[in-house]
Design a protein around this nucleic acid. Structure first.
Lengths: 140, 140
DNA sequence: TATTGTTATACTCTATAACTATA
DNA sequence: TATAGTTATAGAGTATAACAATA
């Protein structure tokens, strides 16, 4: 594969990923702002402290405080005292929070799913392979 | 292909597109904020009025005013009076603005290009086909 | 004294409403 | 009177610096 072909692939692939991403985010945006949704997703696998979430999301502690406040007020996240360390707070998803994450995912998938229905099985199989490849690429 | 396989593809493909998009934007973010870069891209194909750019970007007119101010101050966009309608303003890219767009694109491609180098020619050929497919999907 | 989290303050991008200039 | 653009003001996100409580 020539340099020019590689460059073309790079640019085209980048652009199409960004376009799909933008469309999905736009179509599937519910009443949760992106930074709010991100926090809920982080808490999906188990409770975390505000500091941990802030570091994962690369956001300042005060900023995370604000975001968490909003989510607690909406009943999507629960604050609890750490029994062993009085300085820490433990954040976890409420059942409603878990529902909100699933619902947002469902809405985002819907847009893409209806479009993939128009493809042939062979074309979808190709995308399955390409997705696996891209997962390796993006994981580096 | 079963319903479950299609759902899995939908979700995996959506997530990997979003991840690539996020990484590319993060790695390739220069000194231009996303909303500033978007405006420059819109002006790439020719001059537009502030109102037109605001509608394309789905942003309010005052918000666009602010954004344009910043770009004009940085010498990336030029304001000009419309000779036929004194109410209107014509926005266009300056040579520096055009350079800034190219430079940002180059930086974004760089991240992905280095990762694609680690693939085999066959794998890259697969991605070429998948990209073409995704372009059709995203265009709908 | 170090660490966790919140409050105080400021800056940026967003919006709607009010204003200016032109058609 | 209607339209293009800007200015006035407010709301939500971000940040750093200062503070409170706990280890």
């Amino acid at each position: 594969m020539t340099r020019a072909q590689k460059d073309r692939l790079t640019s085209d692939l980048r652009m199409v990923c960004m376009r799909v991403s933008r469309r999905v985010r736009f179509e599937g945006s519910g009443d949760l702002a992106p930074h709010q949704f991100s926090v809920l997703v982080r808490l999906e696998d188990g409770p975390l402290t505000p500091k941990e979430v802030a570091e994962i999301e690369r956001v300042s502690a005060p900023s995370m405080s604000r975001t968490v406040n909003g989510l607690v007020e909406r009943g999507l996240v629960a604050r609890a005292d750490d029994p062993t360390d009085g300085r820490q707070v433990i954040l976890s998803l409420t059942p409603e929070g878990r529902r909100a994450v699933k619902e947002t995912r469902r809405r985002r998938d819907l847009w893409l799913a209806t479009r993939l229905e128009h493809l042939t099985d062979d074309e979808r199989a190709l995308l399955v392979e390409a997705t696996a490849l891209l997962e390796r690429v993006a994981a580096e």
